[in-house]
């Protein structure tokens, strides 16, 4: 390993400082007594208690979570299938088009995706609202799931599937008994990614929504346009907290699992 020079350390510290400082400031000022976000006037949690009484906000949060749960689940199924199609079937008609359609949404500007989906929903006469947002989210998040699952499938030892076929399992059985359990962690990360992307989305939701379906980002956006308030900081802090707890728990669990695995492996070799 080359040396980890002072320059390397400095660039990491500065880079990470840049990434985290704004978020840290935002969290700090959510506990500000004053309504002015930029002047510290003492510690308070009043903005959090106020949130509890903001029914419109709670409704929006509930819509957002339902959209995210449904769309992440459907997107995971579709994205996993898409990844399988890309990795396992190297030759079928229109494969070029297919892989293009999987990769393009990863970089497609959201305004285009949003507008085009809206026009589709209008053209087929679908009432806009909860379900159109969900359909739109399925469409753009499934491609992220596909990419995550695909990279796992690429490193997958296919001979274990052949072994299952060889032992008499039909392809369908092989998929459910062998392939799916082995790629399950990647499928799960795909689900989590789809879930957070859906929670987060503003632009596509705004285009495809209809009366009565307001998501949390849309709510936050309309308030942000009116100015910065500690209340918004409080919502943001809660969302960040949820994500941070989730990530920390997940990483502790995987760390422990890996440590356990390493111990097992060492034990196995000590024995043989």
């Amino acid at each position: 390993m080359g040396t980890w020079s002072r320059f390397n350390i400095a660039s990491i510290v500065l880079g990470f400082g840049f990434l985290y400082l704004p978020i840290v400031l935002l969290v700090i000022f959510s506990f500000n007594e004053s309504k002015l976000v930029t002047v510290w006037a003492g510690f308070s949690t009043k903005w959090y208690t106020q949130l509890w009484h903001n029914q419109a906000l709670l409704d929006a949060a509930w819509v957002t979570i339902r959209v995210a749960l449904i769309s992440a689940t459907c997107a995971t199924v579709l994205g996993t299938l898409a990844a399988l199609a890309l990795v396992r079937y190297t030759r079928f008609r229109g494969r070029m088009l297919f892989s293009g359609m999987v990769y393009a949404p990863l970089v497609m500007p959201e305004v285009i995706t949003g507008l085009s989906l809206l026009l589709l929903f209008v053209a087929i006469g679908l009432d806009r609202g909860f379900w159109t947002i969900t359909l739109a989210h399925i469409t753009f998040t499934m491609c992220f799931v596909a990419v995550v699952v695909q990279s796992r499938l690429l490193s997958f030892d296919q001979s274990i599937e052949e072994a299952a076929l060889d032992l008499g399992a039909t392809p369908v059985r092989t998929f459910f008994a062998i392939t799916l359990p082995v790629i399950a962690p990647a499928v799960f990360s795909g689900w989590v990614l789809a879930f957070t992307l859906s929670l987060d989305d503003l632009v596509i939701s705004s285009f495809t929504t209809g009366p009565g379906a307001t998501t949390l980002p849309m709510k936050i956006y309309s308030q942000v346009r009116l100015g910065v308030t500690p209340e918004i900081n409080a919502i943001c802090t809660i969302l960040i907290g949820i994500v941070a707890i989730g990530v920390v728990v997940a990483s502790i669990v995987t760390k422990q699992r890996e440590a356990q695995r390493e111990r097992d492996e060492r034990a196995a070799f000590a024995q043989s």
Partner: peptide
């Protein structure tokens, strides 16, 4: 392959990583 009365032992062993030894053999 799943209808043939032959079985194969793979070069990489191809053991199912998520199953115990017992379940591998019973598969």
């Amino acid at each position: 392959p799943y209808r043939r009365p032959v079985n194969m032992m793979f070069q990489s062993y191809a053991l199912f990583p998520h199953m115990t030894v017992e379940n591998n053999i019973a598969f």
